[in-house]
Amino acid sequence: MSRRPYVREMSKTTWYMRNGRYRVYVLRELSSFLVAFYTFLVIYALSVLAAGSAVQWNSFLASQQGVGMIIFHGLALLYFLFYQTFPWFKLAPKAMPIQVGENKVADSKIIGAHYVAWIVVTAFIFWLAGVI
């Protein structure tokens, strides 16, 4: 071992600012806060529903309305789409390469299938909720 090993100085808290790829990685990872937030929001909604009265449910729905909530959910939706959903589809052929016979299925087909499935799933949830 070298007597004076070279140690590159690197901040433990701001290392990702050195490089654009690292910044995108950190931005993607931060979408996990949205997953946690919406999971606990739904659990809270279920606790209100479990109380079993329409009055409480309606006041919960009313508490979720307003310009601030519209802006928050709108930004959250854009953030989640561009930093989780679309990147997740993009990496799918790397995570799950599919082989048919001798050939690998083209990445674009796997990614395209994910987008089609996503549209179907979204339409199904909206149908289930009575939106369409």
Partner: peptide
């Protein structure tokens, strides 16, 4: 979550409006 959370946020957005 990649597949269904956008729709879920969309529902909260509808409620918010």
């Amino acid at each position: 979550t990649s597949f269904i959370l956008p729709a879920l946020i969309g529902l909260f957005l509808l409620v918010a409006t």
